[in-house]
Design a protein around this nucleic acid. Structure first.
Lengths: 124, 124
DNA sequence: GTGCGACTTGAAGCGCGGTTCAAGTCAAGC
DNA sequence: GCTTGACTTGAACCGCGCTTCAAGTCGCAC
């Protein structure tokens, strides 16, 4: 059993963030020792998942829905498929952006924003 | 010359957003007709660039710095290179996330979050 | 048993990226 | 010249994702 400070340290999240996630339903403490939350070590996996999804641009609410997903919950699974497709677009956009930045970091075009190479970033 | 309503419509941005960007230094109206802003058509390119960068996760402040970049401004160009490298990581993370979601959308693993396939998402 | 310090709570606050609102100004059509 | 209605402004407000704060509660060492 871990206490909140330990979970915070090992997950890299602030204790306030852990309480916030709990309030939002992403997390549950296993029990209490007096007032104090106690956590099972598995919570660290869940937190890693949450952090990863946050960095990938999922909102806290979305993550909550996914974490509650039951197998066979076709509605949520469909949402996931939709989200996966959206990620494909995100990835393509980020690639164009990266290529443009790669170029821009060595470009000497007069107003940089007018550089045609740079403008490729703007494609659909 | 375009007025703000036209620019808003053609750029897909709200007039309030255009004024917001102007206040933040990302944009400038070409002049005024009375009180009213007038825009050169080129502003649409700049707005496309801004929208694209926003979707790619750049903050408004970052975009402002990049738009002000002079060629040969090595500090900003270095920032761009750094950002390009960061995008590489973002892209890799998004790809893992997409693969996991692809799997999750058809997975029947009991608690989905325990599915080992799904957990690949959590790699560094 | 009495501090101490780390936890608890709810509420308020913050930065971001805008949107909305109230009050005012103006160009153009009648 | 007067209305109309789209613009102008600054300030207030919003949702998100937390963080911070004040006030209270507890476990543990002494």
């Amino acid at each position: 059993m871990l206490d909140i400070a330990e979970v915070a340290q090992r997950s890299g999240l602030a204790p306030s963030a852990l309480r916030f996630y709990e309030k939002k339903g992403l997390l549950s403490s296993n029990g209490r020792n007096g007032l104090r939350r106690t956590y099972e070590p598995e919570v660290l996996h869940r937190l890693a998942l949450i952090s990863c999804a946050r960095r990938a641009g999922f909102s806290v609410a979305e993550i909550g829905r996914f974490l509650l997903a039951m197998p066979g919950d076709t509605a949520v699974q469909q949402q996931m498929a939709v989200k996966a497709a959206a990620l494909d677009e995100d990835i393509a956009r980020l690639r164009r952006m990266r290529d443009s930045l790669d170029h821009a970091s060595t470009c000497t075009h007069e107003p940089l924003v007018e550089c045609p190479e740079f403008k490729r970033m703007l494609a659909p």
